[in-house]
């Protein structure tokens, strides 16, 4: 089961909200987006490591989990939880080519499976096959939904980068 959808505002409230930029983000709000997409980690905000923010730090850790983004995909994997059971791989293979088009079921051309278990853990080997990688296809989250160990999460695609603004 994936984590509940995280809201940026909910995360933002727990941040120091000083916009000090030490994390490399222009604002705390931008950092909240980065946390949700797991492209940054809670530890990247030096302010949060201070004692006074201890409670927020723990709350954020709990909300975000230990998952790390698998580079170049929407997949966030908690490597210590993944058992390599392959349930995600199996459901994905079945769901991969079934799509909805104009409210009806349709077939998509066969593509190589995006997921594979390697060295006992899930890997994304062919991101371009994932339905989430193709604009206009259904937003799929089956693999994360079916993980028996809640090791897998899917995050929304990267928010437009605000770093230069």
């Amino acid at each position: 089961m994936p984590r509940k959808d995280l809201q940026p505002l909910q995360i933002y409230r727990l941040l120091p909200r000083t916009n000090c930029k030490l994390c490399g983000c222009p604002t705390c709000y931008a950092f909240a987006f980065n946390l949700i997409s797991r492209s940054r980690r809670v530890e990247d905000c030096p302010e949060l490591l201070k004692d006074e923010f201890g409670e927020s730090f723990r709350a954020l850790k709990k909300m975000l989990g230990e998952g790390e983004r698998i580079a170049g995909s929407d997949h966030v994997l908690d490597r210590s939880r993944c058992t390599g059971c392959g349930d995600c791989v199996a459901v994905c293979i079945r769901a991969l080519t079934t799509i909805t088009k104009n409210g009806r079921l349709a077939q998509r051309a066969a593509v190589p499976p995006p997921l594979k278990v390697m060295d006992g853990r899930l890997q994304v080997v062919e991101w371009s096959s994932c339905k989430r990688a193709v604009p206009g296809l259904d937003i799929c989250n089956l693999c994360a939904e079916k993980c028996p160990f809640s090791a897998l999460d899917l995050v929304k695609p990267e928010e437009p980068d605000q770093e230069d603004s």
Binding site: G84, V117, G120
Partner: peptide, 12 residues
Amino acid sequence: ILIENACAKGAA
């Protein structure tokens, strides 16, 4: 150097 398809238990 690379074990494919085995679960964590099998790989270990």
